[in-house]
Design a binder for these strands. Sequence first.
DNA 1: CCTTACATTGGAATGGTTCTCATTTGTTAT
DNA 2: ATAACAAATGAGAACCATTCCAATGTAAGG
Lengths: 154, 154
Amino acid sequence: MASNAVMEETLQVLKDHKLRVTPQRHIILAYLVSHHNHPTVETIRDALSKELPNIGASTIYNTLNTFVDHHLVVELQNGDGSTHYDYFGSPHYHAICTNCGRIVDVTYPGFSETEKSLEEKTAEISGYMISGNHMEVYGLCPECQIKLGIKKND
Amino acid sequence: MASNAVMEETLQVLKDHKLRVTPQRHIILAYLVSHHNHPTVETIRDALSKELPNIGASTIYNTLNTFVDHHLVVELQNGDGSTHYDYFGSPHYHAICTNCGRIVDVTYPGFSETEKSLEEKTAEISGYMISGNHMEVYGLCPECQIKLGIKKND
DNA sequence: CCTTACATTGGAATGGTTCTCATTTGTTAT
DNA sequence: ATAACAAATGAGAACCATTCCAATGTAAGG
Ligand SMILES: [Mn+2]
Ligand SMILES: [Mn+2]
Ligand SMILES: [Zn+2]
Ligand SMILES: [Zn+2]
């Protein structure tokens, strides 16, 4: 279960975004804030089965779509057919395993400059009024490298 | 219809990748090489209805998935629910309109360095063995800016 | 030309996501 | 506190992009 501090924080986030505070929204957001596992709707439903035993799948979809609209949450695909969700509290991007689908967070000093530069150049060239970006990197996670018997430098 | 030169080029591409040369593959690849409209499976099916009146949807999916596996083609989502496909002849990324879904190609001098740097840093930090990346930028296309009556600098 | 491994076909199945609508609930104003 | 209204919820049905399957067709090598 989410800590008291997380519950306070998420309550404030909902209020800041002028979103109606329902138990479902509060609990889902608290779950996302305290878990960086990039869950699917099913994963969330299972994880919250104690706190919200009767929640409908549509409510989870509605809630997550609302969070996405408010840029609280981002959507990710890893090739397994379902959408993964991620609370976007601090800027980062993702490395996605092409073998097992594992998604890990990545950032580095200077990443936000890279981002900003990409957006500025894109605006200049395309004429789009930029509102955001997604960067993803694909490859084999360390575990799959071992599992598949692949040598790094050879 | 695709030009003679395109047909020769795509034939060679298929051979280079040791892909069996079927009319369906050849025509689909030629279509993608000569159109940068980021089509869906339905778009492709409609566009090729003269040349391939009896092609099955599963054949188009199979073909495109094969091309994706061989890194000839990349998949894109623009939020309309279906996957868009793009022949990836030269390195570029995409600006996607959040209002109408329009996808345009972008590149700039130094882009490949940005890409390479992102991949190297990701490998270092995550331990993944990198095989590729996707970068996308979101915003309003020029047409939608006008349609929605949005001023750029104000 | 024969062989065979692989590709195509079309229809059915799948499954993630959205839709519908009756009911409940949160919020704001009185 | 209460009332009134808009918005959210949840169960199930509907949707539809994509995959699966078994039968048929065909490209490519010998
Ligand atoms: Mn993340
Ligand atoms: Mn493109
Ligand atoms: Zn993996
Ligand atoms: Zn647009």
